[in-house]
Design a protein around this nucleic acid. Structure first.
Lengths: 185, 185
DNA sequence: ATTTTATGTCACATATTTGTGACATATTAC
DNA sequence: GTAATATGTCACAAATATGTGACATAAAAT
């Protein structure tokens, strides 16, 4: 069953984004299968993590790219990318964790994240907006990038924690991000 | 040596905030002592975590309270609390992780975080500012609270990653937070 | 100098996690 | 209905993590 593999990956993403050392037993349980079945689909822990990484990278890149293409206006591009990332929820969080504190496989960090060059597209928009003085000029691009990611995560977790409804969460995220970088529309 | 105990706690905070399942061996190594010594100061993993929790809670509460008292103006109170949290660095991150996704000891969650009622003081200021229409009225207080925490973390990690200098980081954080909530000074 | 005190090293028992083989039992396809 | 496929259960070996006792050594205190 191809579906089992997906179920396991989804479960692993859920588990590992909160705790990279979560047991395979727990992942299997979360997926609703036995550990033995998990091991039939994935040779070992590393294999599972790699699979999650690839899947989630594809999923997120696809969503972000579509969001990027969805509009001509650069500001709407950015807004839709923000929304897309929030929609990705756990998928996005997982990727972020994998790549941020480098505790997994530090290797080919940059390469893969930029493979589909979503990040560079995003950066170009921000740089352009900053050139046009439509963004607070006191802030640096790396700061804005970090901020963008962290507002997305705030949004995702706020929904999960039941603090905010999903649509509100997206709205709040955009209001906050715009305000945070002093974006003039 | 009383200092060894502190060294171990500091090391544990560093390790556990990135990976709650990090080995005691790793913690000991980070602290520059043998695992045997660690076990002389802490009965077991749980004991160590509890100690970290208490220490960091004290440290953060103290810093935030001082920041709160440091000025009459509520906005400056908030700003200084933001700065204080950023100064706490790893300490703050550790506490945040402990309390956010509830994977440690979910027990007495609220109680302890509010024990010194820093959070409630903070909340009162925000509620008051919102009543006075000095904050974007579309946003909810829980959202703003989450945002506050996440901007602090962004700031801390931006410094650690070498993306921004510490002072810039504090400045950026404040600019961003003000903007994000539409604060009128 | 000698006694405390703190730490390190090593060995060891225990517990947990991981990965696999063997076999039973569903579920699906033909 | 039978064969093929997917999954579950159980047992087990290997690896890793944890906690402790015994003893050596270094540092500090007297």
């Amino acid at each position: 069953m191809i579906d089992t593999k997906s179920k396991i990956i989804a479960a692993a993403v859920t588990c590992f984004r909160n705790n990279k050392s979560d047991t395979l037993e727990r992942v299997a349980e979360e997926a609703g299968v036995s550990r033995r079945t998990l091991h039939r689909y994935f040779e070992n822990r590393q294999d599972l993590i790699e699979s999650c990484k690839n899947e989630m990278l594809n999923s997120c890149n696809k969503a972000m790219n579509e969001a990027y293409e969805s509009d001509k206006d650069p500001i709407k591009k950015v807004r839709n990318m923000l929304f897309a990332a929030i929609e990705q929820g756990a998928n996005y969080s997982f990727i972020k964790r994998i790549y941020e504190h480098s505790n997994y496989s530090d290797l080919d960090r940059e390469k893969e994240f930029e493979s589909d060059n979503v990040k560079s597209k995003w950066l170009k928009i921000i740089e352009e907006l900053q050139k046009e003085k439509r963004i607070n000029s006191e802030l640096t691009v790396p700061w804005i990038f970090n901020l963008f990611g962290s507002i997305i995560e705030t949004s995702i977790y706020a929904v999960e924690a039941g603090d905010v409804a999903k649509n509100d969460s997206k709205k709040f995220a955009w209001i906050s991000f715009k305000g945070a970088i002093g974006l003039k529309e």
